[in-house]
Design a protein around this nucleic acid. Structure first.
Lengths: 253, 253
DNA sequence: GAACGGCTGTGAATAGAATCACAGCTGCAG
DNA sequence: CTGCAGCTGTGATTCTATTCACAGCCGTTC
């Protein structure tokens, strides 16, 4: 929409079919976001150094991550911002909106229904499910709530292949197995219980309190931790108290 | 409460002060949960093999994780279930309930206020904050909502050192800096924007849609991925379609 | 009390991810 | 057209995490 329309050529230049690590994929999401924001700002090309600063990784890592999907960078101009945004979307399969479903219309479920982040990233919650007769048939934030018993029909009808589970812990494994049997291959699970992945099905678990416990540990053990100064692992960042010879990114800008 | 009261001795036998990796700490949370559930079931001792199966890690990893905090296992009886539950809680600092605060009483914020998981893990949301005049002064799920302007006073009053942020993206960095300056050393951030950690402050980011994007990628690229059969990395689990010589945990029990 | 089966904790080995560092290319300046 | 500055992609290296495998110990059994 914004920049150089010199494209039209092959978007995925070649298919190196390399081993892509899980954490590379996790970072992909952040790269895409950065590319799209830059595109919105009218930037056409960006170098790995600047983009890495923006995302919070090292330039080398950024280059290696992107390079594991093909050769994209122009050696002396950097990466084509618009094109990379599209390319990453295509790699992740979020280049066009896909319908998903929500299981469990409790507090968390309703919050997820109103959460705008999903739509922004290409996921549309098309249907909701619950077992509570109070909720079945009602419409929440524009989405109708169906009874879990009819999941097979409804999922097929909406052509849904990914779902979010935010239900009660009881019978979770059974529910997951049944969802999987209905043709769903990816489940985002918010229930803090261990679930065995059915055959051919990916399950990503998100335990909200677990991160709090992690933080609690870090805070407690920080005393005595010999200056791990400004580390950042995964999605936890920390800045040490005494930025000894660090240039000057203390508190200014 | 349940088992052998032969305790009373030192809970943390020694202080080996080893390097503890971040992912060890992340798993700690699952171990504690397992220990507490076993205790509730009346189990007194458990071996690394069984517990590892329960949690979904290898026995060697479980042993090494626990051993990095001290020597706990009885060589031929295994781990004292009750004692380990308490010990891990103590290590993580969740052995007694601590007060936390919530910033942003939007859809997600309100869901978090009603989320029972926090209390179960030892975190009590004592206060909420927002900038919306509509919300300030009102009480949500039993918690009063204060204006962000008064955060210093309120946080001190409730003796709060950890907070959860689920606000609008605008002014996030400023908010975080101010929260940190008020004596908070750990922030759980639900806003999908990059935030620089202020000095001496830990920030854990939780991007809900990022996991969905990860799943989308995995589903899409699964075709052609040569039988990575039943892998599980971090909090993503997968079971391959053709469990060739795998014993028999297909779909039965 | 002696012998033994089997478990923990841990050194050594392996696997995996991040970083370094540079060859080779590309656009630009003159 | 030639020379140069500086960037990408990637082999080599370092660092980190996981797994292997076993010494040494414990409770139990005879």
């Amino acid at each position: 929409m914004s920049t150089s329309e010199q494209t039209g050529t092959t978007p995925q230049p070649n298919r190196p079919e390399k081993r892509v690590s899980m954490q590379t994929v996790e970072r992909l999401s952040a790269y895409r976001k950065a590319f799209e924001e830059l595109d919105r700002d009218g930037v056409e090309f960006i170098h790995s150094q600047q983009l890495a600063d923006l995302v919070g990784v090292t330039p080398a890592q950024l280059r290696r991550d992107l390079a594991s999907f093909g050769t994209f960078g122009n050696i002396s101009r950097g990466y084509n911002v618009y094109q990379m945004g599209r390319t990453i979307s295509r790699i992740m399969g979020t280049d066009e909106t896909q319908s998903i479903a929500l299981f469990g219309v409790g507090d968390l479920g309703r919050a997820l229904l109103s959460y705008r982040g999903f739509e922004e990233r290409g996921f549309h919650i098309a249907a909701a499910f619950d077992v509570d007769a109070e909720k079945v048939g009602r419409v929440f934030a524009g989405r109708r709530c169906y009874h879990v018993d009819h999941l097979e029909t409804v999922l097929r009808e909406f052509d849904i292949h990914m779902v979010v589970v935010a239900s009660r812990p009881e019978g979770l494994q059974t529910l997951v197995d049944r969802i999987s049997a209905a043709g769903v291959h990816a489940i985002l699970n918010f229930v803090p219980n261990r679930v065995r992945a059915p055959e051919g099905c990916f399950i990503a678990n998100t335990d909200i309190s677990a991160k709090l416990e992690l933080l609690s540990f870090l805070v407690r053990s920080e005393v005595g931790s010999e200056s791990l100064g400004a580390r950042a692992q995964g999605d936890v960042a920390f800045a040490a108290v005494a930025p000894r010879d660090v240039t000057a990114e203390g508190m200014g800008a």
